[in-house]
Design a protein around this nucleic acid. Structure first.
Lengths: 341, 341
DNA sequence: CTGAAAGCGCTTACAG
DNA sequence: CTGAAAGCGCTTACAG
């Protein structure tokens, strides 16, 4: 029923609490006989060390915090899965918070985690986050912080990312290789670092192939959030503005699927009239019709790598070694499907 | 840098630790002057109470555990979102674990959470869970447990669910109302409670409308996991076995989308040749073509309701009131789209 | 090989 | 109004 303590075991065995504690932890200076007795009784009483007391003594909780912009999101939920899988292996628990792409909330959540004394923090920052002092505070307090996917470039800490620019360049190059002559781009939120990098990759591909960059072909997300609706909206606008466009590279699969839907409604044939490449490789993209050519973004692997790096730093700090920040770049790949020729 | 303690504040102010503690918590028996001084200094030093010590004293951590079969899943990620939103409001943190539909893992995770001394547990059980002692242990230990969606009917605790049977009946009735004469059912895993209830709803609708129940029209999930592939597989099998089927009620949207894809590949027209109703209302179902008629399952609301109930029980226990278990049934609704006439 | 003691940082019943 | 003291349950350096 109520919780068994070291004290209770000690009393029943007529030995001291210290000896019980040491016996359970296999200290070499306890006799095998005592160890046997203690362990047996602990087992029959179903003794579980009180984590609160252990945490207070050892100053660590074997718990980390994770802040993520959105959970209902194919890519991010895969990242979470990767983090949980790896954390479980190493005996860590994960407290998850959703920032909802809000800087204010993110800041508050960092404080919550710090107050809870988590051992480290994993974060993918909100689109609206411009100020990073709440994050540098984490590092100043001596807690490891690892950023993934949506990172702050200027912050000194470990990061796990993909090469957005290169991936976007590959996507655009694929449109060029399959014969597109005039290629538009839906670029998502203006200030998101991923969006910026993907935009730059798009531009770079155009330049390398001697295409003229035309800023009127680049559509920004008006609504702030990269959504299905936005894809529909921009697709319609695109058709009004530019009748000659024959290819679009779209920032995110969800938006691409919105565009695909709008094109279908308007009788535009994909890929015959317009080719589309998305980004992320959501499951949905493989079952929509036409299925969507896209860039595979390895969410599960990213989650695993992020936790691994955090764990590495946790160990380095424990041994008072100098912590080495790393930037881990995961591979992306173009997944060719039916929305391109 | 390193953490400020009550002791440090007390020394700087030349008062006792007890007074500092009480001042910060606005005890009425501390002078306003002292309170002012303490609070001011606490603020400038950025004092944060050490959660480990507070937990040890108060025997609660304001943290709950959540075990869920899968995270990369539209419905469950919505539930998580609802839980986190509500937990945040009440000042609780949530440790999330994924059981992967494995009973063994689920059992281990319950123990992990118990050892961590979470204040309560929220769970949707694995399909493979037959034995519930790990769950009744939670209740025996005096910790509140609330189950949602995938519940164990025999366990005495609060539950938040939908009426799977009624919803399935509505789905089947819709097929009947739109003219289907011979209706198949893809029922998912044999032993999952939800699957059983949905199957019973299907059967009930048939009976009420004087349709003859034909068990050869019911397809079980062979692979154990309700997947896209399973939908494709069963759809093909269905066409081989029964040329006369003109409607299918499918257990889960993902499987239904698999079936939709297989039908498209084989030149079967939906809904002209066969009508389909899914279950869950995944986002995907609204963008696929033809869009899928389905049952809306309110994930976000379910998450909110589950946390609310847990919180209620937490408060009841704290006040030593008798805890009243509740069964909360949330409304579902048929969402008519293009896969039915 | 065993145990007494100190201490992690807080809360709260009690004394003054 | 303030403070000394006990205690939450554990860990570990130290003494014997």
């Amino acid at each position: 029923m109520s919780q068994v303590t070291l004290m209770q075991i000690a009393e029943k065995l007529n030995i001291s609490v210290s000896t019980v504690s040491k016996a359970l932890k296999d200290y070499p200076d306890v006799s095998d006989k005592t160890k046997g007795l203690v362990k047996e009784l602990a087992k029959t009483l179903n003794y579980q060390p009180n984590a609160f007391a252990v945490n207070l003594r050892t100053k660590e909780s074997k718990t980390i915090g994770l802040i993520i912009p959105a959970i209902v999101h194919h890519f991010f939920s895969n990242v979470i899965k990767g983090i949980l899988a790896q954390a479980e292996k190493k005996g860590y628990l994960v407290i998850i918070l959703q920032s909802n792409e809000s800087y204010e909330l993110e800041k508050k959540q960092i404080n919550l985690l710090l107050r809870q004394r988590v051992d480290g923090i994993l974060i993918s920052i909100a689109n609206t986050t411009r100020n990073f002092t709440h994050l540098s505070d984490v590092i100043t307090q001596g807690k490891p912080l690892v950023m993934f996917d949506k990172i702050a470039k200027i912050l000194e800490c470990s990061k796990v990312v993909i090469d957005d620019r290169k991936a976007a360049k590959d996507a655009t190059q694929h449109l060029i290789d399959t014969g597109c002559k005039r290629i538009a781009h839906f670029r998502g939120p203006l200030l998101s670092q991923n969006s910026i990098d993907r935009f730059l990759g798009y531009k770079e591909a155009l330049e390398e192939n001697n295409f003229i960059y035309d800023s009127s072909l680049v559509y920004i997300c008006e609504c702030g959030d990269s959504s299905f609706e936005e894809g529909k909206f921009n697709a319609k606008k695109l058709l009004q503005d530019h009748k000659d466009v024959d290819g679009v590279f779209i920032n995110t699969d969800l938006v691409a699927i919105g565009a695909l839907t709008a094109f279908a409604e308007m009788g535009i044939k994909v890929p015959d009239d317009i080719s589309i490449v998305g980004f992320s490789n959501w499951f949905m993209s493989s079952v929509i019709s036409p299925s969507l050519t896209t860039i595979n973004q390895p969410g599960f692997e990213m989650g695993k790598a992020a936790f691994k790096q955090l764990h590495k730093e946790l160990k380095q700090r424990k041994k008072s070694k100098t912590v080495v920040y790393e930037k881990i770049i995961l591979d992306t790949a173009l997944v060719k499907r039916d929305s391109t020729k």
